[in-house]
């Protein structure tokens, strides 16, 4: 179980972005999360995946809080794939960065083998996001946080990617936290949907 226990965060000495935030995602469960822009959803996602330390509270993954030198069991997929892919690498190399599970999954994501020899600048955002997702779903991944994962993609690619991800998640019993503004999408993919402002006693400045 992925447990967020009373975390709080603010930048420098600014206003609290959120305080005492609680949230759980069970293995194999898909939780949809929505909320206003600038409310702190992305910061929470980064804390959950270990990119940032919470100022208070803790994240407990399957009963543990330390996974230092190993791959983090919670992986985050960002909205813009261009930033999370080294522009000097061929895609082949990107796939060696994590232990990518099974080739059938790459096919299901719509990744073509020829693309492995390309540089990021030779692929479009949609293609790059497929690679970023494949990498995030390495064999060590237990939970996936999809922060506006398909917002920049067209509807067909979005459907294709989510079908592949949901199928793999079901097979490997991976828990997913999907963050999106698209209420239709969340309703379609989630077992339950929650409002970000309901998770915390104090939520950040509204846009």
């Amino acid at each position: 179980m992925l447990e967020v226990k009373g975390i709080s965060f603010r930048y420098r000495k600014g206003q609290w972005l959120f305080k005492d935030l609680h949230l759980t995602v069970k293995p194999g469960e898909v939780v949809g999360l929505f909320g206003y822009s600038g409310a702190g959803k992305s910061t929470m996602a980064q804390i959950m995946a270990g990119y940032k330390e919470p100022l208070e509270g803790e994240i407990i993954v399957d009963g543990r809080t330390d996974y230092d030198s190993n791959a983090h069991p919670v992986q985050l997929v960002w909205q813009h794939p261009e930033k999370v892919i080294n522009p000097k690498w061929r895609m082949k190399k990107l796939m060696t960065e994590a232990t990518v599970s099974d080739p059938a999954f790459l096919t299901a994501l719509g990744i073509k083998e020829e693309w492995l020899n390309r540089y990021p600048s030779e692929l479009s955002g949609g293609e790059l996001q497929r690679f970023a997702i494949a990498r995030a779903l390495a064999s060590s991944t237990k939970y996936l946080i999809a922060d506006e994962m398909t917002t920049m993609l067209d509807a067909i690619t979005q459907a294709q990617i989510w079908h592949a991800v949901l199928k793999l998640a079901a097979q490997r019993n991976i828990g997913i936290l999907a963050i999106s503004h698209d209420a239709h999408l969340l309703r379609r993919i989630s077992d339950r949907t929650i409002d970000f402002s309901g998770l915390t006693s104090c939520s950040g400045p509204f846009d």
Binding site: K112, G126, E127, A155, A159, Q160, D182, I189
Partner: peptide
């Protein structure tokens, strides 16, 4: 392929 319609994916790219 819209979520509120069929959410039907399409093979390929």
């Amino acid at each position: 392929s819209l979520p509120q319609n069929g959410f039907v994916p399409l093979e390929g790219h």
